[in-house]
Design a protein around this nucleic acid. Structure first.
Ligand SMILES: NC(=O)c1ccc[n+]([C@@H]2O[C@H](COP(=O)([O-])OP(=O)(O)OC[C@H]3O[C@@H](n4cnc5c(N)ncnc54)[C@H](O)[C@@H]3O)[C@@H](O)[C@H]2O)c1
Ligand SMILES: NC(=O)c1ccc[n+]([C@@H]2O[C@H](COP(=O)([O-])OP(=O)(O)OC[C@H]3O[C@@H](n4cnc5c(N)ncnc54)[C@H](O)[C@@H]3O)[C@@H](O)[C@H]2O)c1
Lengths: 225, 225
DNA sequence: TTCTGTTTGTGAAATAACTAACAGCGTTAA
DNA sequence: TTAACGCTGTTAGTTATTTCACAAACAGAA
């Protein structure tokens, strides 16, 4: 029996699904009940074929005539992305960037919530910042266990990033979002994603001034939006 | 005559070159004069073949015996990425994230420099933040001309992002780094790159808890580092 | 000198990601 | 009732990106 291969989705697919969900909440807020692949595609700046292809990993099917039911689609993406589970996050490094991130993810009622922040600087800790309690690093392990923290965000200077990553891993973290321009060495089963703002800026600078091989055909369907 | 096709490099290649350069500065600071592709590869978390392939877009060749000369390589990447030009940047939206970015790129002596920041909030503007002067939005066009600003960073709330992008484009910007979770509509010749922190975090959450098709072979060369 | 080790540069092979194309199917309009 | 339409699911095809593999190059040892 040729069993269905599990076919775990690519990183890009997961990124797009996350984006679709965000966009769909906007649609829903505007009172729309249904949406077609090409409309969602236009908002996400991808092709409609891409949207439909991405949907294949979800169990949910749209109707050829009504398109996708926005509410159902959000539910499907949510079930796919986080199984209905919420995840608790620790942020380490309450500097400029750390604080900015706290301001966005701390108060949120979302599935992904920063429940504790940590820093070595004693002048910063033991108080609430953007609604998130800040602990000294000594408390990291204990708080992670107490709060069932499984994800970490690293916003410390590059020199401290590896040490912090080690501590997070020891605390049982399963994934890390790293803003320090350093390649973190972690156990095999810990997932790391790096977000390098400097690199992003240099990329913009390059293509802004050297031009790009532009998408030759605006591909009718995107153009008409 | 089979002329050399221009073959503009992919976005990924540019990103990696930027990263290589960053890493190479670190190498240089440690006093190393030369480096092999596999060592650089390990630091950048890519394969050595990838490194060598990326180097092909530069004019510079390493020596089979000594590897790459760090100083020369930095110079080559710099010439390739920015032609020796510095670029002046405007940041719009001096909120939590905007301030964090100012703290990193404002004081810097780098080729990429944030020379002015803008906001609609009158309580914020007309003062120095992290060494960068903050102007009211009304001054945007004038300051952009005066300071020869060609790049913009957008850190305003999603609802304001398109308006801000329009203003930047009218001011003559060539590229935009956008942190708002919105697809910006800009003229054909303006390059836009989006950095969506929420999406990045959700990707980490997904792969942390659902696992990934791990790179099956650590490919000897990476493993031995 | 000659042999040995290793590394680079590079085209070819292999993967991965995206796009095109179309069968199938409700819905609507006669 | 039937035909026409527009959209989805899906597979096949295309393009982009990465890895492989190996000739050529060079330093050092003998
Ligand atoms: N702010 C940006 O725009 C930006 C851009 C690119 C990269 N980054 C990177 O993001 C990271 C944070 O940037 P930032 O601007 O917030 O820096 P920052 O200096 O403002 O903050 C760093 C914080 O980390 C804390 N810290 C230092 N060592 C620590 C340790 N061992 N354990 C716990 N906490 C520790 C410090 O006390 C400080 O509060 C850096 O790695 C930086 O390179 C930031
Ligand atoms: N901080 C984060 O971690 C984070 C994460 C994900 C996304 N983002 C996005 O980044 C952007 C900025 O986030 P933030 O946390 O800094 O928000 P913020 O509310 O702290 O700052 C927004 C700033 O933009 C200014 N502003 C509003 N409208 C403007 C206009 N028309 N022209 C000029 N300035 C204007 C406001 O006065 C304010 O100073 C938002 O789009 C947010 O969705 C931030």
């Amino acid at each position: 029996m040729p069993d269905r291969i599990p076919q775990s989705p690519s990183e890009k697919t997961v990124e797009r699904l996350s984006l679709y969900r965000y966009l769909l909440y906007g649609i829903l807020a505007e009172g729309e009940r249904n949406i077609f692949s090409h409309a969602l595609a236009a908002m996400a700046a991808v092709s409609s074929a891409q949207v439909r292809q991405d949907m294949m990993v979800l169990g949910y099917s749209g109707s050829p005539n009504q398109g996708y039911e926005v509410g159902k689609l959000i539910a499907s993406i949510t079930e796919f992305l986080d199984d209905g589970h919420g995840r608790n996050i620790a942020l380490v490094g309450i500097g400029n960037l750390g604080r900015a991130i706290l301001s966005n993810f701390s108060g949120q009622r979302s599935r992904l919530q920063i429940v504790a922040a940590f820093d070595v600087n004693w002048q910063i800790v033991n108080r609430l910042i953007h609604g998130c309690w800040c602990f000294p690093m000594e408390k990291l392990h204990g708080v992670m266990k107490e709060q069932d923290i499984t994800l970490g965000i690293v916003t410390v200077p590059p020199a401290a990033a590896q040490v912090v990553a080690d501590q997070l891993c020891e605390g049982g973290v399963r994934g890390i979002l790293n803003f320090a321009p350093v390649r973190l060495r972690v156990p095999e089963d810990v997932y790391v994603s790096n977000l390098n703002i400097t690199v992003a800026l240099e990329k913009v600078a390059y293509f802004a001034h050297h031009g790009m091989v532009r998408v030759e055909s605006p591909s009718r369907e995107e153009a008409k939006v």
